[in-house]
Nucleic acid binder design. Sequence first.
RNA 1: GGAGAAAUGUCCGAGCUGGUCGAAGGAGCACGAUUGGAAAUCGUGUAUACGGUUACAGCCGUAUCCGGGGUUCGAAUCCCCGUUUCUCCGCCA
Length: 427
Amino acid sequence: MLDIKWIRSDPDGVKAALARRGGRYDETIDRLLALDEERRRLTTESESMKARQNAASREIPALKKSGQDVSPLLEEMKRLSEQIKERAGQLAAAEASQRELLLGLPNRPNADIPDGADDRENAEVRRWGEPPAFEGFEPKAHWDLGAALGILDPERAGKVTGARFHFYRGLGARLERSVINYYLNTHTENGYTEIFPPFMVNRASMTGTGQLPKFEEDAFKVADTDYFLIPTAEVPVTNLHRDEILEGAALPLKYCAYSACFRGEAGSAGRDTRGLIRQHQFNKVELVQFARPEESYAVLESLTRDAERVLQGLGLPYRVVCLCAGDLGFSAAKTYDIEVWLPSYGRYCEISSCSNFEDFQARRASIRMKDSAGDKARFVHTLNGSGVAIGRTVAAILENYQNADGSVTVPEALRPYMGCERIAPED
RNA sequence: GGAGAAAUGUCCGAGCUGGUCGAAGGAGCACGAUUGGAAAUCGUGUAUACGGUUACAGCCGUAUCCGGGGUUCGAAUCCCCGUUUCUCCGCCA
């Protein structure tokens, strides 16, 4: 949520900043300003009426005590009370409309990120590792490897549930579990506190991190409740400190969390229909940090490095790109995507997204900080990044570590978890 | 799932036969006095948000006694709905 004071004091600056995203927000901002003026007028009016009412409330008992007739005053107050109620209704309506418009506005992009309309204009920041050569054979896609090895079974998942779900089997299931454990262990050894969150959250939490109200169609809602299946552990973990004032000395708070993630993937019909890349349910280890505002961009750099660390540990080639303004997510001010090399796609493919939300989420979720008791509380900056997606990691391991005979070599770092060095076709 | 009880400021805890209650009292904390220093004692102070005004001092106003609605001239106090916690029963991993 943007600060209404900023919008009020610099509407043209807001319009210019949001225009970089490519959407049209000028009209919303103009409506917001008009509504804000109306809201403040109603506030002033109703507050002065309430002041009169409160004054009378103090007079009435005294007048009664001295035996005076208070009925004319009561008559006046009855009328006033009705006017106050009328104002209260108007004010509530104005506040609700204003909040709705504010909640619908995306975050302001950081001034330093590149301009651009879509992912073609993202800026590559660095690369790590080399795509494998595959001497003497044509590499297979992970879904073909998975079928041949008997470790991935989307067909039966289609029967049991529906499209975009998978059964993992045998060493496939074990590989998924090993990657989760390897990631969590790496991050907790690196100073992150492990969280195992609820996989369903309420509406306030979904609003706090920015999934609602605008993107309700993307979420799975549990029927007959007000709960949503989480699209990412970012939601429960960021909302862990909703409506709290954090101690400045404790910042940054660093959390990592495994969760299953559930996404409707509305609007992506026909994309990535095969394999593990785009599923309604997938696993992810997420990194979340709560930072002092003045440190948040340094934290974004270190958080991104922390996410990269696990790919380096697995020896998977990747690159880091800085998203251009047009490709930026709704809540983010700046985002680095980490893209892993996927031979079947013949290109780098998103496996992690590390973002600084500045105070956008903190304002929605009311997460503040204070250095000492006398200080005025101010909003923290929230950050998160996948550290990293598990299904896509498994896809990348299968494809990058495949051998000419159809087997897959287990990366060194996973062998203690897997208890084997190779995944070979079942006899 | 059923039946009861509860939710007050940083904490504990009054008020809950509606009226001057932002809210007694205590603890804690801060400052001051006392002391060679400390403990004890005494004194003073001790919420947040928003709006207005102003010299960023301050002052004025509004809101906040779990959340939301209602009754009333007036609600921490009465009524309704919800949430959470506790106790008992049921059910279970």
